[in-house]
Structures are given as C-alpha cells and as structure tokens.
C-alpha cells in the first residue's frame, strides 16, 4: 500500500520533469531526424522502428541513470528523506519506488517512440513486414534490458555518491559501461540470445539494486 503510494507519487514527479519531456517528445523527433539523414545517404534504409529502438537504448538509458542518481543525491543531501524515514514505511520502498517509476517512464517512452516509428514505416513503405516486427521486439528487449541496468546503476551511485558532481561522473563513465554487460550474449550469436540478455539484465539490475538497498538501509541521516 505504502510502496504503491510512493511509486505513484514518484511517477507523478518524474513524468512531468524536463528530462522526461525530452524523452516523450524528443526521442521520436531525433529518430525522425536520423531517418532523414540516413535516407539522404547511399545504401538500404534501416526501418524507422529499429532506429527508434536504438535511439531509446542509447539516450534514454544514460538520461535515466543520470536523472536517478542526481535526484537521489540531491534529495539525500537536502534531507528530503528525513520526513519519509520517520514514518512507518520500509526504507527500501523509497528507492524501489524511484527505480520503478523512472523505469516505467522510460519503458512507456520507448513504446511511444517505437510505435511512432512503426507508423512512420507504414506511411513511407505502405507495408509492415514480420521481419521488422521481429527486429523491433529484439531491439526493444535489448533497450529495456540496458535501461534496467542503467537505472539500477543510477540508484546505486545515487545512494553511495556524496555529491552530484561525483555521481554524474560515475554514472557517465561507470553506469553506461555496466549497462552494456547484458548485451554480451548477443555477441555469441546463439539461438535465443535475447532471452539470455533479459536474464542477465534482470540478475545484474537486481544485484545492483540489492547493494543500493543495503547501503541505504544502513545510512545515517
């Protein structure tokens, strides 16, 4: 009950933020720009839906992790959490609410971007092939796997880092590298690599979150 209240609260806070505004509107716009740039160059055009998914994975993951880390560090240093922690709720609910709210926002932004891409493909080609849908499903899975790890890394860095500057540097140089780990199974070209990717992402994100929760639980405010 209290966890869901915190989740809905955080969702309300994040979905109206400037970063999320960029993700809601900016991602499809950037993907369209990529499409036009690519159309003007030689070679076969990559389907718009795939471009959308690629844009989401590269930009959204970074933005999400930076947003989470900076938000947690700021709120921690301003003692915003004091008023929550003196109430009968579990400390972990605060961090999990943040993680899931940002992740939900990114997931929705990804779907919007990809749906826009699919629509664009349909308008320009007049048809949608099953190959495109397969590519979209794989791209989305990979994107959201990377975003999950990025978000978890953002939460961990936000919990541990003493200042926004340190947090931002750690996220940009460390968080992004970690988020690539789930993609390793796809390099092996094995059947169903995407499922391995999903499993690795869930395990890695879970481990990062678990460390963050332990640190947060022991933290003195």
């Amino acid at each position: 009950m209290k966890a869901s209240l915190l989740f809905i609260d955080e969702l309300r806070g994040f979905y109206k933020s400037k970063v999320m505004l960029f993700l809601w509107v900016g991602l499809p716009v950037i993907a369209i720009l990529f499409r036009f740039v690519q159309s003007s160059t030689a070679g076969e055009a990559i389907p718009f839906t795939v471009i959308s998914a690629l844009v989401v994975s590269s930009l959204a993951g970074t933005l999400a992790s930076v947003m989470l880390a900076v938000s947690i560090i700021n709120e921690k240093n301003r003692h915003v959490y004091d008023l929550f922690l003196i109430r009968p709720l579990k400390r972990r609910d605060l961090l999990l609410a943040k993680f899931f709210s940002v992740y939900t926002c990114i997931a929705v932004a990804s779907f919007i971007s990809v749906i826009a891409g699919t629509a664009m493909d349909f308008v320009t080609t007049g048809t949608l092939s099953t190959i495109v849908f397969d590519e979209v499903w794989q791209s989305l899975s990979l994107s959201l796997s990377m975003v999950a790890v990025s978000c978890a890394a953002g939460v961990l860095i936000g919990t541990a880092a003493p200042s926004v500057m340190v947090g931002a540097i750690l996220v940009i140089y460390g968080g992004n590298q970690i988020s690539v780990i789930p993609l390793l199974p796809t390099l092996l070209y094995i059947e169903g690599a995407v499922y391995f990717t999903l499993a690795v992402a869930v395990a890695l994100a879970g481990a990062l979150l678990a460390v963050a929760l332990v640190l947060f639980d022991r933290k003195q405010f």
Partner: peptide, 10 residues
Amino acid sequence: PQNVAFQEWR
C-alpha cells in the same frame, strides 16, 4: 527537522 525540505515538484 532543523532544515525541513520537500521534493520541489510537489
């Protein structure tokens, strides 16, 4: 608390 703070979007 001494320096009370809230999430500013609220």
